Computed example of a mutant assay.
Amino acid sequence: MSPAERPAAIRAALEAAFAPLALEVVDDSHRHAGHAGARDGRGHFNVAIVSRRFAGMSPLARHRAVYAALGELMTTDIHALAIVARTPEEAG
């Protein structure tokens, strides 16, 4: 997949898994040019997601659920992923 297609693919996977009330996907790959992890062509992303499906989950469980939802993208297109995963009540 081309680097330009990655944010949309991440968004689609997370929307399908979590039906988020809010979702922001930011591609920060340009800030990591020359970084050892960027050499393989995979990207650096920040995700902020608000979903009712995170209710009752620990922060670690939420991150694991996001990684699972992204599946193969984690090995083919994403090098680094920063996650803020909250319930609607936490998001205020």
Score class of each variant (00 low, 15 high):
Gly71Arg: 10
Ala19Gly: 12
His63Glu: 13
Ala69Lys: 11
Ile83Asn: 06
Leu60Trp: 08
Ser29Asn: 02
Val50Gly: 00
Ala4Pro: 01
Ala22Asn: 14
Gly43Gln: 07
Ser58Asn: 10
Phe45Thr: 04
Tyr67Asn: 15
Arg53Ile: 05
Ser2Tyr: 10
Ala9Met: 03
Ile83His: 07
Gly37Cys: 05
Ile83Ser: 04
Asp40His: 13
Gly34Cys: 11
Ala80Asn: 02
Ala61Leu: 14
His63Phe: 09
Pro7Arg: 01
Pro20His: 05
Arg62Ala: 11
Ile10His: 00
Ala68Tyr: 00
Met74Gly: 12
His35Cys: 01
Asp28Pro: 01
Ala68Lys: 13
Ser29Cys: 07
Asn46Cys: 01
Ile10Gln: 01
Asn46Gly: 02
Phe45Ser: 00
Ile83Leu: 07
Gly41Gln: 09
Arg62Pro: 11
Gly92Ile: 06
Val25Pro: 01
Asp40Ser: 14
Ser51Gly: 05
Ser51Gln: 04
Thr75Lys: 11
Thr76Asn: 09
Glu89Lys: 08
His79Lys: 08
Arg11Lys: 14
Asp28Ala: 14
Tyr67His: 15
Leu73Gln: 06
Ala82Tyr: 13
Val84Leu: 08
Leu14Pro: 02
Asp27Gln: 04
Ala69Val: 12
Thr75Leu: 12
Leu60Gly: 07
Leu70Asp: 03
Ser58His: 12
Arg11Tyr: 03
Val25Ile: 14
Val25Thr: 07
Arg42Met: 06
His35Ser: 05
Ala61Lys: 15
Ala22Tyr: 15
Ile78Arg: 00
Gly34Val: 10
Ala12Lys: 13
Leu21Arg: 11
Ser58Met: 14
Arg39His: 06
His35Leu: 03
Asp27Ser: 04
Val26Trp: 05
Phe45Tyr: 14
Ala61Thr: 10
Thr87Cys: 10
Ile49Pro: 00
Ala80Met: 10
Leu81Lys: 09
Thr87Asp: 08
Ala68Leu: 08
Thr87Phe: 01
Arg42Lys: 12
Ala38Ile: 02
Ile83Cys: 02
Ala85Gln: 02
Ile78Cys: 02
Gly92Trp: 05
Glu89Tyr: 04
Met57Arg: 15
Leu21Ile: 04
Ala85Lys: 01
Ala82Lys: 12
Gly43Lys: 03
Ala91Lys: 07
Arg11Ser: 10
Met1Trp: 10
Pro7Glu: 08
